[in-house]
Design a protein around this nucleic acid. Sequence first.
DNA 1: ATGGCTTGCACAAACGATTGTGCTGATACA
DNA 2: TGTATCAGCACAATCGTTTGTGCAAGCCAT
Lengths: 353, 353
Amino acid sequence: MAGNGQRATLRTVAERLGISVSTVSRALSGQGGRYRIRPETVGAVRAAAADLQFRPDPVARGLRMRRTHSLGLVVPDAANPFFAEIAASVADAARLRGHAVLLCDSRETTEREAEAVRLLMDRKVDGLIVCPVGLRADHLEACRAGGLPVVVADRIVGSPPLPFVAADNAAGGRMAAAYLVKRGHRRIGLLQGLPGSTPNEERKTAFLAELARHGIPRRLVPVAGEEFSEAAGAGAASALLDRHPGLTALFALSNVVAMGALRVLAARGISVPRDLSILGFDDHPYAALLATPLTVIAQPVEDLGRRAAETLFDRIEGRAPSRARAAVRLPVRLVERASVAAQPPDATKGTRP
Amino acid sequence: MAGNGQRATLRTVAERLGISVSTVSRALSGQGGRYRIRPETVGAVRAAAADLQFRPDPVARGLRMRRTHSLGLVVPDAANPFFAEIAASVADAARLRGHAVLLCDSRETTEREAEAVRLLMDRKVDGLIVCPVGLRADHLEACRAGGLPVVVADRIVGSPPLPFVAADNAAGGRMAAAYLVKRGHRRIGLLQGLPGSTPNEERKTAFLAELARHGIPRRLVPVAGEEFSEAAGAGAASALLDRHPGLTALFALSNVVAMGALRVLAARGISVPRDLSILGFDDHPYAALLATPLTVIAQPVEDLGRRAAETLFDRIEGRAPSRARAAVRLPVRLVERASVAAQPPDATKGTRP
DNA sequence: ATGGCTTGCACAAACGATTGTGCTGATACA
DNA sequence: TGTATCAGCACAATCGTTTGTGCAAGCCAT
């Protein structure tokens, strides 16, 4: 071991052995056979490289190869447990492949997201995983056009859709409706997230359709909410409570929306599930420890990140043509806790809420 | 605008103007004055660059300049709300400086942490923010020795300590003790995290000292727990409850430890704070919505990340010599909710628990 | 002995930026 | 007229890799 301060480069190794850099490069990259390097030479190179603790410089390699072995991850809010878990699982998947993860937080704005995408493209990441904020996807389409593999997670954007990994939102919506009905609820309010976004529309549409199948037409189901945020969830809950006092249950289309609702219920002294039942979309680590353990439709968040990374690697490594459409749907499941009460069948069935 | 598919390089710009790359480089980097480039030339270069949408390649620049304008962030668990929020604030601070953030998750093991540090050093990050897992810090000392700026956050490691940004743990310990005593508690158990780690020792020492000042000697304060994890917190809570049934309050030294304790209390049907009071270290977004809104010693988590990034940039940009010791302490505060009951003064005062 | 084939490696050109050092023409000055 | 000075730019090396091609030496066959 020759720890002479400076980092070893190919040249260091080559000079020590009195051979050329190209030979060293080929010997180390396993191209010894293809380029007819003598096995003894390869052995000597390996030994010298190990001895000098040679590690190829990813920056130089990136310049030459136009591949940086890194990928970009853009999330709307890195502090949100949902995206934090996605980040964790993406980081893990990337590590296994020897890739680095460049993390950007779009702070829930499309401008920041576009800026992040530009930054990451400039940095020559090999691929991009984006949990898009909103509805437009020009900047993402541009990546695809530029030949940069992109996979979106959670939400689906673009037409035709960009390759995506998402939860089976429709199934979740149906399960939610069926469950609430089974528990005897018929006057149900819907706390939605961002209207027009895929998770919102898929969940909402399936939910309303399933309610309709059970004899509750959609005009009897009040809907409120304008985005996926705690504040919007609180606002939506307040609005619904004020305008439709007869509701017995609320279905919140995301974890933060549910949390916003819980805060206003707590503030108003409304007891869950005695006075009002709540069903949420998205689980989170502390849902079971809440004042009322929250019953939820849980997404497999960790899988979401892992599958997104795998889908991306398929494209990066050319196993899937980058023009191919990937469409991965992950199953959701109902986690029954205590926030949805069994509602005694009542006479007001079908009453306009 | 000439969108001819390929990205513009310095050469593209130079050729369009019929001048050399070096002139273009200097004109764009504001070195026009130092190198006596004619102002009209500079203007023409700027215009052409804008027209061609030239953006310098960070990879090539990184190779030449040995500065990548990126920084590494290593956390023990990216999905933990505490570290997720640190990640979010670091990402934001980095964005403001035009730096990218490379995120690594050490999964709470020192080996992974060392591996991550190696990866990041290889990638030539300009600096490193590490939330260390454990007690040893050889790999971090090695960075410092190698001239790579390092700042540790949350925990303090190394001797002499690496530059750090941490909460005022001792003050937190004192506040906790004083508060519990003020509420009438005298038989108190301590649920610790990783023994030997700085947050743990600072919090514990100050807590026990303050209790002693109030006439509760440390031999009367049972301590359990071996690491900062929910499982360990649960185990420690079980052990304390079994061996010291007379306790009226528990002080948990981290958020996850408190959560573990809450789970066993819930499982055992012990009501908080009626049967037992709980005080936690670390706030989190949903603490107020828990079955019993948790009273905590809150750390300014966002500041922790931001200050760590700022401290790092000071070193990267040479404002602080990298041999200088940075030692930033951030104030903590008591957030009073409902998990600590006022304990009636009792006759068993001083009784061995 | 000579031509051709293989073996085993070296040379050099990229990749795209930065930067020290020339080099040329014009002006100024003696 | 000769030369010193300066403006204004070009040339080329460099960072550390990868990779197409060239080129000697050895071997075989004729």
